[in-house]
């Protein structure tokens, strides 16, 4: 997987598949309210697309799309969105995670506020799951040495 798979077919299929996978993950997330799916599954699938990039090309390619720092930020950001959404109702006498009080900030009735509140937290879940899965995979596959492995590749060393 770290070796360059000099296989044109794999790369072409991957190039073709990746946008579809990403679209599908978005579909899973959006449709989570009315069909199986949701943030977690969506996040996993989104991460799978990045894993596929890493497999078909290399980690550097994946990092071009989503740099390491950004990914780290996303790890924290997702849960922060979730927790902060839960915190917001506290300012308007609601309980923690009581989304219906979001209706005081958004032009929505309480039930719909719950509906979109759930969507919001699922977004947070998706972001974190995606970022963590990517980071986990990259760390495990390189045993934590992203850079040295990339450098080795530039120098033509096959590990």
């Amino acid at each position: 997987m770290v070796k360059d798979p000099d296989d044109i077919i794999v790369r072409t299929v991957a190039r073709f598949m990746i946008p579809i996978i990403q679209l599908f993950s978005l579909y899973v997330y959006v449709h989570g309210h009315i069909s199986p799916g949701g943030g977690f599954q969506g996040g996993c699938i989104l991460a799978a697309s990045f894993i596929l990039i890493s497999l078909a090309f290399n980690i550097g390619e994946a990092k071009k799309i989503l740099s390491g720092r950004k990914n780290l930020l996303f790890i924290g950001l997702g849960v922060f969105i979730y927790a902060f959404t839960g915190l917001v109702p506290l300012f308007v006498q609601g309980n923690f995670l009581d989304y219906q009080h979001l209706s005081q900030f958004l032009p929505l009735d309480p039930v719909m506020a719950r509906y979109y509140g759930v969507a919001l937290v699922e977004l947070g879940v998706q972001i974190t799951v995606m970022a963590v899965m990517i980071s986990l995979f990259q760390d495990l596959v390189t045993a934590g040495r992203h850079e040295s492995i990339l450098k080795d590749r530039e120098n033509g060393i096959d590990r």
């Binding site: 199986p36 799916g37 977690f40 599954q41 996993c44 699938i45 991460a47 799978a48 894993i51 899965m133 995979f137």
Partner: peptide, 11 residues
């Protein structure tokens, strides 16, 4: 089942 498919078989 969906989650398991994404997690167990995938990630």
């Amino acid at each position: 089942a969906f989650t398991e498919a994404a997690v167990g078989a995938g990630v």
